[in-house]
């Protein structure tokens, strides 16, 4: 059996990918490439990799600059499967590797199964509206995998294996600055409760009512794409959806959200979803645990009162 590679954005994600590779490959040798230093490489070995390469973030070049070296090695080693993080850098690397290897690459793959001649994978269409199940015959198949898709195996410090790094050739892209993400006013990804605002909330002034609800619930406030990108009523970091924040709160309350697949993608991991949308048939209502099909302006003040009284 040929090797399975994992290429990870960070150590926790490497743990996820290693667990994925172990469950998919059933005994295949796992070769890991992880953003970080020697310590990270060793830690990945403890989590299941047989061999690990650390790829430190270069100061003056993008991390994606490792792509040519990874491609050279992949051409020589011919892994059956390469699992990568769905992070932005790793997606870029995945696509470049796929092009050089002339290989299929599945983005956000699920239910990955190695077959005799390649793999079968499920991917999402239309932001989660449908699931596409595909099979492919190829020497190497690439799949990007979410950070929580597999439960990492417990670290076993007794495991050992070779640790190395890859060369970083001088590339055409120079990094002239890095600015860490500004301390966020809200951390939706970590929030236990989130109230989401959609276009059903027709006026910016009415956001105050929604914020009152959030305060009563002890929730953060997020929004659908048009509210942040089109109306600009809220900062971009508040936008929940396929190209925005993906959240996993205990409770999500959607206020005036139509529930387009793009938005639902961002909240699908919420434990309990409540929708307030006067269109009973709206996707949001139909994909909620509980919904109230009435004007949000009538519902939310009542709900605030009731929550405060509860």
């Amino acid at each position: 059996m040929r090797d399975i590679w994992i290429i990870a954005e960070n150590l926790p994600w490497a743990g996820t990918l290693a667990a994925g590779a172990a469950s998919i490959g059933k005994g295949a040798k796992i070769v890991a490439f992880v953003n970080g230093d020697e310590a990270e490489a060793k830690a990945v070995i403890a989590q299941g990799a047989a061999e690990a390469f650390y790829l430190p973030l270069p100061a003056a070049a993008p991390w994606e600059g490792y792509a040519p070296a990874l491609a050279e090695k992949a051409k020589a080693d011919k892994p059956a499967l390469i699992l990568l993080s769905t992070s932005r850098r790793c997606r870029d690397v995945a696509a470049q590797l796929a092009a050089v290897l002339d290989a299929p690459c599945f983005s956000e793959g699920k239910n990955i199964v190695l077959t005799e001649s390649g793999a079968s994978v499920e991917t999402m269409l239309y932001g989660g509206l449908a699931v596409k199940s595909s099979s492919v015959s190829a020497e190497t198949v690439l799949v990007t995998v979410g950070a929580k898709d597999f439960e990492p195996l417990p670290a076993d410090a007794s495991r050992s294996g070779p640790v190395g790094t890859l060369p970083l050739a001088a590339g055409p892209v120079a990094v002239v600055g890095r600015k860490p993400r500004a301390a966020q006013t809200v951390d939706l990804a970590a929030a236990v409760k989130v109230v989401g605002v959609g276009r059903g909330v027709a006026e910016e002034g009415d956001l105050a009512i929604v914020r009152d609800l959030a305060e009563a619930l002890g929730a953060e406030v997020g929004c659908s794409r048009p509210i942040a990108e089109f109306f600009k009523w809220m900062p971009e970091e508040c936008y929940i959806g396929i190209s925005g924040q993906q959240i996993k709160p205990q409770l999500y309350v959607a206020v005036g959200i139509s529930g387009q697949a793009q938005h639902y993608f961002g909240i699908r991991d919420a434990k309990t979803i409540v929708s307030i949308n006067k269109d009973k048939e709206s996707l949001m209502n139909q994909n909620a645990d509980y919904f109230i099909a009435a004007d949000w302006k009538a519902v939310v003040p009542e709900l605030i009162k009731a929550v405060r009284g509860a």
């Binding site: 276009r199 027709a202 006026e203 048009p226 089109f230 109306f231």
Partner: peptide, 10 residues
């Protein structure tokens, strides 16, 4: 739909 509908009722 994008620019007029949100203010029509108001």
């Amino acid at each position: 739909e994008k620019e007029v509908a949100p203010i029509a009722a108001d």
